[in-house]
C-alpha cells in the first residue's frame, strides 16, 4: 500500500487513466512527484483550486499525472504562463514543474525575472543534469567532465548553481533537497508552498537510464546512495553562504525572507491607478 501515517494515499492525487506512467525505471522524478503530492495533501490544498504548469522535457510531462488543473506548456516558458495565470486568477494555487534545461537554459530569463518579481508561484526544478527526453545532451547543470551525447570527451563547461542564481535574482524562498530524503523533500516543498511569494525548490533527481548509464554510475539504488556520499563533486561550489564540501551538499531551506509579494502589490498599485483616475 502507498498509505502513509498521515492518511496520504498518492492515488487520490493521480490520474489513474494516465497509468502506467512513462518514466524510466529508477528515474528520480517519480519520487519528486510523490513528495509534491504528499506536501499538497499535508496542506489540504483543494485540487480544484490547484493549477500545475509545466514545461517540456521529462519533468514537463509530470503535470499530466496530477489530478488538478494542469497545463503542459512550451519549452522553457512554464513560469511565464504561470505568471499570467496567477495574476489573472489570484484564487488559484499555482505550482510550476520544470527541469534543469527548461528552467535554466531556454527558460533562464523567465526564472530570474520570476525570482525578481516575487509573484506567488511555487517552482519545482527537477535537476537530473541532463536532457533526458532528447537522448542525453549536456545541460546547464551537468557536472564538469561528465559524459553526454554532446560532450563525448567530458563536459568542459562550468555549470550553474541554480539555488545561488535564484537567491541572487531575489527569490524570497530557495531550497534544495535530494530524492533520497523523501520526508525532508516533502517538508521542503511544503515550506515552499506555504511561502507567500515566489518559491524556488531544486530537487536533485537521478536520471539512471541516460545519465547514469553514460557515466557508469550503476543501478538506481547505487545512484541513490551516491546522493549520500560523493554526489557531483564539482557541481556545487560554495553556495548561498553555506560552505560546500563534496560530502556536505547544502540542502534544506537556503534563503527565506518576506519580500512583498508581487500579486498583492500589483493589485494595490492598480487600485491606486483607479483612485487617481476617479479624482
Amino acid at each position: 500500500m502507498f498509505t502513509d501515517a498521515a492518511n496520504f494515499d498518492v492515488r487520490d492525487y493521480l490520474r489513474k487513466e494516465m497509468m502506467p506512467h512513462f518514466l524510466c525505471p529508477g528515474c528520480g522524478h517519480g519520487i519528486a512527484l510523490r513528495a509534491l503530492l504528499w506536501a499538497l495533501h499535508d496542506l489540504a490544498i483543494d485540487k480544484d483550486k490547484l493549477a500545475v504548469v509545466s514545461g517540456i522535457g521529462c519533468a514537463g510531462r509530470l503535470s499530466a499525472y496530477i489530478d488538478a488543473n494542469t497545463f503542459h506548456t512550451t519549452h522553457g516558458r512554464p513560469l511565464a504562463y504561470a505568471t499570467g495565470l496567477a495574476l489573472a486568477r489570484p484564487d488559484l494555487h499555482v505550482v510550476v514543474i520544470s527541469g534543469d534545461g527548461d528552467c535554466l537554459a531556454i527558460g533562464g530569463n523567465h526564472l530570474i525575472h520570476a525570482c525578481r518579481r516575487n509573484l506567488k508561484i511555487t517552482c519545482l526544478m527537477l535537476n537530473n543534469e541532463i536532457y533526458g527526453m532528447t537522448g542525453g545532451q549536456v545541460s546547464p547543470t551537468t557536472s564538469e567532465s561528465r559524459l553526454t551525447t554532446t560532450t563525448p570527451l567530458g563536459n568542459n563547461e562550468p555549470n550553474f548553481d541554480a539555488c545561488a542564481l535564484a537567491t541572487a535574482a531575489g527569490a524570497g524562498f530557495v531550497g534544495r533537497e535530494v530524492t533520497r530524503h523523501v520526508p525532508k523533500l516533502k517538508e521542503l516543498i511544503k515550506a515552499g508552498l506555504e511561502h507567500p511569494g515566489f518559491a524556488f525548490v531544486e530537487v536533485l533527481s537521478d536520471c539512471t537510464e541516460v545519465f547514469g548509464r553514460k557515466n557508469d554510475l550503476g543501478s538506481s539504488p547505487e545512484m541513490i546512495m551516491r546522493q549520500k556520499s560523493e554526489i557531483r563533486p564539482s557541481a556545487y561550489r560554495n553556495t548561498v553562504e553555506t560552505p560546500f564540501h563534496s560530502t556536505s551538499l547544502p540542502t534544506g531551506i537556503l534563503t527565506q525572507n518576506d519580500r512583498p509579494e508581487y500579486g498583492a502589490a500589483h493589485r494595490r498599485a492598480a487600485a491606486a491607478v483607479v483612485a487617481k483616475g476617479a479624482k
Binding site: 497545463f71 516558458r77 504562463y81 495565470l85 495574476l87
Partner: peptide
C-alpha cells in the same frame, strides 16, 4: 516570448 505566454496563461485562467 513571456508576454505571449503570460497572455495564454491568463486566458487559460
Amino acid at each position: 516570448i513571456s508576454a505571449m505566454a503570460a497572455v495564454i496563461g491568463a486566458s487559460m485562467g
